[in-house]
């Protein structure tokens, strides 16, 4: 079950590297949030405990409902164009993603011979981190950077579940807090930037340098 969900997660990464619409990105965020929540909820079907359900439910609320809505609201409020404006061709971006993923899966396989880890969740989480960083590097829009960061966070989460079967409470809360802070900060930043800059493109942030 974990492997199936992880592969679904990887598919969502392929979709995100192909689509040109911001809406698609948000849909991917939603689906990834659902996948993560199911992944964490799955063990509790047989062995129910209230304490263990708190974190998956929080993820469900925050990652699936709250954050995508907030991003949608920003897009509507600021009237951002619905295209992602990549800096390289999609046909170059996809092979890059695929090549990195192959490398990561191979490396994970080699690591799994030495230490005990779940290969597929570990590699999927790792790929999500890399894809998140790629999105931040090769996209112009600031709002897309936020999405890239969130995908990276999801990757770290999956990564964490693969390494330790039971995440320490502190780390889980830390991950959630991180996401919260970033989204709010970026939202504020976007609002402020619009008042002084014409568009909302990362290229223009360079002008802020003194």
């Amino acid at each position: 079950m974990e492997n199936v969900l992880s592969i679904l997660f990887c598919l969502s990464l392929f979709y995100v590297s192909l689509t040109l619409r911001v809406k698609g990105y948000i849909a991917v965020l939603r689906s990834q949030g659902i996948i993560l929540a199911i992944l964490l909820l799955y063990p509790f079907i047989y062995d129910f405990s209230v304490y263990g359900v708190i974190i998956p439910l929080t993820i469900l609320i925050i990652k699936v409902f709250f954050i995508p809505r907030y991003i949608n609201k920003i897009i509507l409020d600021l009237d951002i164009k619905r295209q992602v404006e990549p800096t390289i061709q999609q046909m170059t971006f996809l092979p890059l993603v695929i090549a990195s993923m192959i490398l990561i899966f191979l490396a994970t396989h080699i690591i799994s011979l030495i230490t005990k880890i779940d290969v597929i969740p570990f590699a999927s989480g790792f790929s999500a981190i890399v894809v998140g960083i790629y999105i931040m590097i090769f996209r112009k829009k600031l709002i897309v950077h936020v999405v890239g960061f969130l995908i990276m966070e999801n990757g770290i989460f999956l990564f964490g579940t693969a390494v330790a079967s039971e995440l320490p409470m502190m780390i889980e809360l830390g991950v959630l807090l991180d996401v919260f802070v970033v989204v709010f900060l970026m939202g504020i930043a976007l609002n402020k930037i619009r008042s002084s800059f014409e568009g909302i493109e990362v290229t223009q942030l360079g002008r802020l340098k003194d």
Binding site: T87, I133, M136, I137, F138, V202, T203, L205, G206, K209
Partner: peptide
Amino acid sequence: QTDIRYYIAFIL
């Protein structure tokens, strides 16, 4: 470079 995307690339 002043662009934030280069910084992210360096981190990677």
